[in-house]
Design a binder for these strands. Structure first.
Lengths: 389, 389
DNA sequence: AGTATTTCGTCATGGCCGTTTACAAATTAG
DNA sequence: CTAATTTGTAAACGGCCATGACGAAATACT
């Protein structure tokens, strides 16, 4: 009860910039007096700071502006990509305060080496954080693969070649509790928290194709994780049941038509180590017919799979993240056509097709989502982080 | 806060039969003293009754058994089916106390006539309820079609031939607030509340094929309604993108392969007014090759569509309700085969395929779900129903 | 300039609600 | 018949928010 009110104060201050006590009170529906005591507790605990008398311009005594501290607990995010590692520190205000990246080839890699390298980055990052007076409150790692729910084990990451790799105990221990999550999930959370400024908790499907095709479903502001944590496997939704064989053994999975490798092949490119989606974007821009055709087909396939998702979930929008963003100009038309045509039943009273937008965050989604997820839990449970007295 | 604790007391008593104050206290984590005052309030308000000293057998003073009243507020449920109308009254204990059914042909019907007939049934039912001392606390109507979220308008019910029919004001007004919902949604809620005895809030996909194919998605004990209320349109999930044309205008929707009309045609039956799924069951039992083949194909198509849903949602199970239950023996094998084959990616750590079960409730799901939904809201907000002092 | 007005933050008071502690009542165990 | 155990209630306590009053600090008006 008290905890929840402390949390609500923190959240509103983190979300809506500097505010006076009175402004916070009117926003969360408590009295000024109640907010005063809550703020006092948070100030003494070192989670909030006062910013001198705030400028007002309006009549009446100006309030003192409050803001979450930039020196207390912080979130540490990490991303294990196919060809890079990245780590960052985010303070309670949501600002990224430090960041390190390393280009490495992690495809079919040895987990031990990758994790050692990541541990090195994290240690340097922790030193930087320490220098700024930031105390890591947790570490979240984004991984391109399936992660068991409420666990730290990477069940399967096809592009890394990992199976059953447990990250617990293999990364620095002084960063707080470790969580591991799918990169698509964390990308969607970043979109939800940072990208979406919508006042009401929204519902969307966030597609994030890198090598495989991941998706994340957000329902009323909550990430849908699935019973085992495996929700969002859009890549293996059937789009042509008797079509191409997929690496998973089934036929006609979306990934066999719109996965990076499939698209590159269809465009006449050899999916070698250096060849990535970027190359495809270049070809599309120059009008390469094979590339355009390949991307169009991928768009259709994505549209078919998303039509299924939209019929099932009735989201308010579909967001394209990850590598798809760059291809959007060519991907969107066929995608929207299939989507519109196949979701017409429930057309009355809703826009047709469902709006498809491109993520505003870009390739940093998973990393920012990871750090944010730690910051959010800190904002959710302020009690744990109040410095004694 | 107080409201929530009152609600918790009521809920545990409704769910776990007669219990003493002490038993309730230990279950919801409050002290006996606190529960005592809560129970007092509910007793005075007429929502609970004492059942004399309970038999115990164990050492110590026996507690007095408590139970929700069987004479106070109650839920009224109604179902508008394609060829029947049904209404029932459910008390706070979850017992159906009265029930009326009328066989009528509602296909391509005049909404006014159907609603008048339903109103008549409801009036007779209300009289019965009144005779038992039951006070209707709301009316929920199950409809085979799309219903806008938080509204009483049937946006589209293909089998009734209704479009944009608003039920508000066209049914008895003295039964409390009116809610209208899709029959598949209410069937799923019935399965969730009555059928499922699982202790943890579960997640499942509930398929309910009558004429169209509806589905409802339950995530962690919550029905997923969708932004516009149109979630669960499994019938128009694409299963053969270039296949048969569907009534919705698109190609290859599930409904074009596993909808009642499609299956009857494939089995060589003419889908006339009297011919229904029952006829198909008979033929399957007698080994009719065409019928068996038709049902097998429907099963495959369902499996493909459900594979998409399972990949996306990672539910703990899939439940077949409605008309599908009777065909389960022939439907399940091909369905499970497709489902298993197409959801193998995330196989580690979860049963493959996802268990597919048949609803335990049977054809009454939507009706019971409707009445239950009213009872649930009464249990959720006891404050509104406390008789003054 | 000086007063009125408005808004901010704090303090004292009171009420709601659940916990703690104690105790009488009702049963079984020995 | 006593001891042990469990139930339900009563009284005191404590946490927490609301209410109402007040001083502080700005603007608006004369």
């Amino acid at each position: 009860m008290r905890q929840r009110n402390l949390s609500r104060v923190l959240h509103t201050l983190a979300a809506e910039g500097p505010l006076s006590r009175a402004a916070v009170a009117s926003r969360i529906g408590l009295t000024r007096a109640a907010v005063s005591t809550l703020v006092d507790e948070l100030l003494r605990g070192g989670l909030l700071v006062e910013q001198g008398p705030g400028r007002s311009g309006a009549v009446g005594r100006p309030g003192t502006a409050l803001l979450p501290t930039d020196r207390g607990p912080c979130g540490v995010g990490a991303e294990i990509g196919v060809d890079h590692l990245a780590v960052c520190v985010m303070d309670l205000r949501g600002t990224v305060r430090a960041r390190l990246t390393a280009r490495t080839r992690n495809r079919d890699s040895d987990p031990g080496q990758v994790l050692d390298r990541l541990a090195g980055l994290l240690e340097r990052l922790a030193a930087e954080a320490d220098g700024m007076g930031l105390l890591p409150a947790g570490l979240a790692v984004a991984v391109p693969g399936l992660v068991a729910r409420d666990a730290t084990t990477v069940v399967r990451a096809p592009n890394l070649g990992w199976r059953g790799v447990d990250l617990a105990g293999r990364l620095p221990q002084d960063l707080g509790p470790l969580t591991v999550d799918n990169e698509a999930s964390l990308g969607a959370l970043a979109e939800l928290w940072a990208g979406g400024l919508s006042p009401v908790p929204d519902s969307f499907v966030h597609v994030s194709a890198e090598i495989g095709i991941g998706a994340a479903v957000v329902v009323e502001g909550q990430l849908l994780r699935g019973v085992h944590g495996f929700a969002g496997e859009l890549g293996h939704v059937p789009v042509r049941p008797d079509g191409r064989r997929c690496t998973c053994g089934a036929r006609g999975c979306l990934e066999a038509y719109a996965g990076e490798e499939a698209v590159l092949r269809a465009a006449g490119l050899d999916p070698g180590p250096g060849v990535r989606v970027d190359a495809l974007t270049v070809r599309c821009e120059s009008g390469d017919r094979a590339a355009l055709q390949a991307v169009r087909q991928a768009g259709s396939a994505l549209g078919i799979a998303l039509a299924g998702a939209v019929n099932l979930l009735d989201p308010s929008r579909v967001v394209l993240g990850g590598a798809l963003a760059g291809l959007a100009p060519w991907l969107l038309p066929p995608l929207s056509r299939e989507l519109a045509r196949r979701t017409a039943v429930a057309a009355e009273g809703r826009p047709t097709p469902v709006p498809v937008t491109v993520s505003r965050i870009g390739p940093d989604g998973p990393l920012l989502g990871a750090a944010s997820s730690v910051v959010r839990t800190a904002l959710d449970t302020p009690g744990t982080f109040l410095n004694g007295r």
